[in-house]
Simulated assay, not measured.
Amino acid sequence: MSLFRTELRRLAKRRFARWMTAGGLLVLVLVAAGMFFSNQKIGPEQWAAAERRAEQQYQEQVRWAETERANCERAKASGANVDYYPPDCADISPPPRESIEAEWFLPSTFDFRETFGELLIPLAAILGMVGFVVGASFVGAEWNTGGMMNLLLWRPKRLTVLLTKLGALLTGLVALALPATAAWFGSMWLIANWRGSTAGMTSGTWQSFLLTGLRGIVLALVAATVGFALASLGRHTAMALGGAIAVMVVGQVGLGILLEIAGVRFAEAWLLPTYALAWMTKTITLQDWRSCNATYTGECQPATLDITWQHSSVLFTAGVVLFLGAALWAMRRRDIT
């Protein structure tokens, strides 16, 4: 019997993996439902209602200006302290009608071209979380229950067993991520048709969205590999989950506060979420408002630092090599007990 097929079946039959996958998919369904019910398609009725709201707002401003102008004139006629009024009460006037735009009062609408790229980030985050937790439990449970020892009696090649498990995990994650991503594209496209707009879509825009979705799947595979490696190192699922909590709560939150107190420039460049976001969006520009770059017009512009997806790829590659390499080294050197 093929070890790879056996591991795939074991992964598919794990109740924790099923429940975790179902939970991640449920979150995506809830997000899609929220997008559907919180947006509307903009048509003549919505524009007419927005024009009425804009006119109503303008009339309120006119009434306010008339009232304040009358109060100003009465206050000055009585000789009261009117420092909070202008020298000439006639200066109190409503804003011009054209300054109150109807667009301000339009309901929320889902513009697929402008918004969908941002919605690929929560998809990647959920897939990454599912991959990390399932990857950690997949190998951690084997160590904790003694299943790894039994498996090595049947197939004594340690590194082959561990890498086959990892291969089965990543294959299963890809089998989940590809249809989930395709369904995400399809559902958001339908929501945009029903509750928004799909105007302006070009082949270049589609290509950009597809590449972003692919980067999200790669990010999930990296998270699954790191979770798998940490659990294998600690020979327990809690090792990976505890490490993740320590990194995110202690390492990221605590480090962020410490860097801010110390006044370190571009403190976000030391935080892992920055690189995950840069990987998905291709570039993040950090700003240091404590620095001033004078322009020819005399303006003060903050110093900037660009974090690109290339920086993120180097960090992720180093992390996978480090943790997976350590797990393979420990598997080869340590006793199986």
Rank of each mutant, 00 (worst) to 15 (best):
E45N: 13
Q46W: 02
Q46A: 12
W47T: 02
W47D: 04
A50E: 05
E51M: 06
R52M: 13
R53F: 04
R53Y: 07
R53K: 14
A54W: 01
A54G: 09
E55D: 13
Q56W: 11
Q56E: 15
Q57I: 04
Q57M: 12
Y58A: 12
Q59V: 13
Q59F: 12
Q59N: 15
Q59H: 10
E60A: 15
E60G: 14
Q61P: 00
Q61L: 13
Q61K: 14
Q61E: 15
V62K: 01
V62W: 00
V62G: 01
R63P: 03
R63H: 14
W64V: 13
W64L: 15
A65L: 09
A65V: 05
A65T: 08
A65D: 02
E66V: 08
E66A: 11
E66C: 04
T67N: 14
T67R: 14
T67K: 14
T67V: 13
T67Y: 07
T67I: 10
E68D: 09
E68R: 13
R69F: 06
N71V: 05
C72F: 04
C72H: 01
C72P: 02
C72G: 01
E73V: 07
E73Q: 12
E73Y: 06
E73G: 01
R74M: 10
R74I: 10
R74S: 12
A75S: 14
A75H: 04
A75D: 06
A75K: 04
K76S: 08
A77N: 11
A77S: 10
A77M: 10
S78E: 14
S78P: 02
S78A: 15
S78Q: 15
S78T: 12
G79F: 08
G79L: 11
G79E: 06
A80C: 11
A80G: 10
A80P: 06
A80M: 12
A80I: 09
N81Y: 14
N81W: 08
N81G: 07
V82W: 00
D83H: 10
Y84N: 11
Y84L: 09
Y84K: 07
Y84S: 12
Y85R: 05
Y85Q: 08
Y85S: 03
Y85P: 01
P86R: 09
P86I: 06
P86C: 09
P87L: 11
P87I: 07
D88H: 08
C89M: 09
A90G: 07
A90K: 05
D91F: 08
D91T: 07
D91L: 13
D91S: 11
D91Y: 06
S93C: 02
S93G: 07
S93F: 05
P95D: 11
P95V: 05
P95K: 03
P96L: 08
P96Q: 13
R97T: 06
R97A: 10
R97H: 07
R97Y: 04
E98R: 07
E98W: 09
S99W: 01
S99A: 08
I100F: 02
E101F: 01
E101A: 06
A102E: 02
A102G: 01
A102N: 00
E103K: 02
W104P: 00
W104M: 05
W104R: 06
F105R: 01
F105I: 02
P107L: 03
P107V: 00
P107Y: 05
P107D: 02
P107R: 05
S108D: 11
T109Q: 00
F110W: 00
